[in-house]
């Protein structure tokens, strides 16, 4: 199970990456994609939508089940990975790369300190 050191992780298995411009790229973890199984559909938000921390902003669906995706930080959705509409399996193959889901731009400088570091997330996933 891959858990990159440079990312932060939420309880609901989203990862967050603070970009140089202060925006936050969001996806779901390797653990989450593995638990979902083959992903066949993702319901993405519109660019320009605003989300609060912890808000569900999308839905991800596998042959097995449906899961909601929650915003790890508050802000405005400034980018959406439209390639996932036709090829949501990118989330299975590259959850931290081509399978990124949205970019959220917070209204003010944001800290990811409320999210888990890789080591803590590794322990969290082992607890199940």
């Amino acid at each position: 199970m891959q858990i990159p050191e440079e990312l932060r992780y939420a309880d609901n298995h989203e990862w967050a990456k603070l970009e140089d411009d202060g925006s936050v790229r969001v996806g779901i973890s390797d653990y989450a994609q593995d638990a979902l199984g083959d992903i066949v559909y993702i319901d993405l938000p519109e660019v320009g939508a605003t989300v609060g921390e912890g808000d569900a902003f999308g839905e991800i669906e596998s042959t097995k089940s449906v899961a909601e995706i929650y915003a790890p930080v508050a802000g405005t959705i400034t980018e959406v990975n439209d390639a996932l509409d036709a090829a949501p399996e990118a989330i299975n193959h590259q959850p931290y790369g081509a399978g990124w889901i949205v970019v959220i731009t917070p209204a003010t400088d944001v800290s990811l300190d409320h999210l888990m570091e890789a080591e803590a997330y590794a322990a969290y996933t082992e607890e199940g």
């Binding site: 199984g37 083959d38 299975n92």
Partner: peptide, 8 residues
């Protein structure tokens, strides 16, 4: 339930 993955 699965090995490699349902679709494969």
């Amino acid at each position: 339930l699965q090995y490699e993955g349902v679709i494969a």
